[in-house]
Design a protein around this nucleic acid. Structure first.
Length: 477
RNA sequence: GGCGGCAUAGCCAAGUGGUAAGGCAGAGGUCUGCAAAACCUUUAUCCCCCAGUUCGAAUCUGGGUGCCGCCUCCA
């Protein structure tokens, strides 16, 4: 097994990755709250975990990957009010939207994808256990986690309780009535009371809905177990979300929630974080109008997952241009090669075992083993493209094409050549051009040429029909 | 105010002690009827500034400056 190193937010260091149980790796990543269209920030997060899962599987691990969907939340309820529809409808619409976008971006399906509304009974049981264990208390229809009961609170964010209290003071002033129900401003809601008629569920503590952090703790315990190998999420979730997950789960189970905590960096626009609240986001749907899924993925993977990623149209265009070279190389530069490629992939696969490609594989693995350094891994892909383009030896070309496709695939890049896919407007123009050339041949009484065109088109399933005075019309037969 | 992170060429971006990957853009060239593609050459004596440690630092230490994130919903 490879000597994979992973940066762990808990220790703030790179650590050698060793799974709890042999080759099995249990991963949980925080998914979206479905109240609006997904944007590039969601894409970065999803692509990051997709890349991690793909590489771990490529390295020989059996990965169990779980990603949740938060489908009940204040933001969803507020959105529903704005739109005048039920929260369930909002959640359903944007859940489908998320799935559509993830599929478009070639992101693999998680092995489990629990939704918060499927976990009410488990969440209620979780709260009940926390109360019985003295880690939570009910207060006027709400239930709060007692932060003072969990000594390690703040270990992920690495902030002392006293310092956090200072920070929480302003909030306490602005939300006086809320704070009066809590023992400490740092205590967070496990359950929020709701008025009758609002969306909610009945519990021993009253009618209401779950706090946001609770679902992740509950789902992890239910789907994967008390301690998982890797927990992933956006950097902005470190505090309070992930910190609170740790508090809930570890207070109850007395075991570490996750051994490795991984966090992806934010996407910035004009040096500011892309976020819903700032309104400066680019939706995945919008981006896909202009850029291919591979372009978006390569744009994200050319930066290390923990670094901030600056979004500009220029850099996305630059990636698009660079990707062209990889695609051309991966699909054979000439038509000849493309045809041979299909029939000789077997040859390529056997040639792939040769020594020179071992070095390429080692370079790729070395990059990825270093905390998933995809920027370096991408450089390996470009190196392969150079090799392909500078040799005329067919066997070497094929084996390197095989390697390029293989490693690109580990990064989730398809390198699919869509350069010859024509839209219908373009097809119309081309037919118009062909028929114009044919018309000029007929005008010169060059019937050999005009008949050749008509017969060839006929063989392609296109009927050409000459008219008396309006040139020729065509249709698919 | 507290905590954390970042500063590398025109742009994007790797590199955490051994003498600056890769991509884009630019320049020159080869090939070509002309293009395109592809290929070759070229583009940071230097990695925000100052001081220090070291035989040796973009990489370590200290001090500045600037930017960002979290502390409130957020991938």
């Amino acid at each position: 097994m490879s000597p994979l190193q992973i940066h762990n937010t808990l220790s703030n260091k790179k650590e050698l990755f060793t799974p709890i149980n042999g080759k099995t790796v249990k991963i949980y990543a925080c998914g979206p709250t479905v109240y609006d269209l997904s944007h590039l920030g969601h894409a970065r997060s999803a692509i990051t975990w997709d890349m991690v899962v793909r590489y771990l599987r490529f390295s020989g691990y059996d990965v169990i990957f779980t990603r949740n969907i938060t489908d009940i939340d204040d933001k969803i309820i507020n959105r529903a009010k704005e739109l005048g529809i039920r929260p369930e409808q909002v959640a359903r619409e944007y859940t489908f939207g998320y799935w559509r976008d993830m599929k478009a971006l070639n992101i693999g399906l998680p092995d489990f994808e629990p939704r918060a509304t499927e976990y009410l009974s488990q969440m209620i049981a979780f709260i009940d256990q926390l109360i019985k264990a003295g880690h939570a208390y009910a207060s006027e229809g709400d239930v709060y986690f007692d932060v003072s009961s969990f000594k390690e609170y703040g270990k992920l964010k690495k902030q002392r309780l006293e310092d956090m209290l200072v920070g929480a003071r302003d909030l306490a002033v602005s939300q006086q009535d809320l704070q009066e129900r809590k023992k400490s401003p740092l205590d967070f809601a496990l359950w929020k009371g709701a008025a009758a008629g609002e969306t909610g569920w009945q519990t021993p503590w009253g009618f209401g809905r779950p706090g946001w952090h609770l679902e992740c703790s509950t789902m992890i315990a239910d789907v994967l177990g008390d301690t998982i190998d890797i927990h992933g999420g956006g950097e902005d979730l470190v505090f309070p979300h992930n910190e609170n997950e740790i508090a809930q789960s570890e207070a109850l189970h007395k075991k570490p929630l996750a051994r490795y905590w991984m966090h992806n960096g934010m996407v910035n626009i004009d040096a500011e974080k892309m976020s819903k609240s700032l309104g400066n986001f680019k939706t995945i749907q919008d981006l896909l109008q202009t850029y291919s899924p591979d372009t978006i993925r390569l744009f994200i993977l050319q930066t290390h997952y923990r670094s901030p990623l600056e979004f500009t149209a220029e850099s996305l265009q630059a990636v698009k241009n660079g990707l062209q070279r990889l695609i051309r190389a991966a699909n054979g530069v000439s038509q000849d090669d493309a045809e041979k490629l299909a029939s000789q992939m077997q040859v390529a696969e056997s040639a792939f075992t040769k020594e020179e490609l071992r070095k390429v594989g080692a370079a790729f693995a070395e990059a990825m083993d270093n905390d998933f350094n995809t920027a370096e891994a991408v450089a390996v892909l470009y190196g392969l493209a150079d090799q392909i383009n500078t040799t005329a030896e067919i066997e070497k070309r094929l084996s390197h094409i095989y390697a390029l496709q293989l490693y690109a695939g580990v990064l989730g890049l398809t390198l699919e050549d869509t350069s010859q896919n024509l839209d219908s407007a373009t097809s119309q123009e081309i037919m118009s051009l062909v028929l114009q050339i044919r018309q000029e041949a007929r005008a010169k009484k060059d019937y050999a040429t005009s008949d050749l065109i008509r017969n060839k088109l006929g063989a392609l399933g296109i009927n050409v029909m000459d008219t008396a005075g309006n040139g020729a019309a065509w249709e698919r037969s």
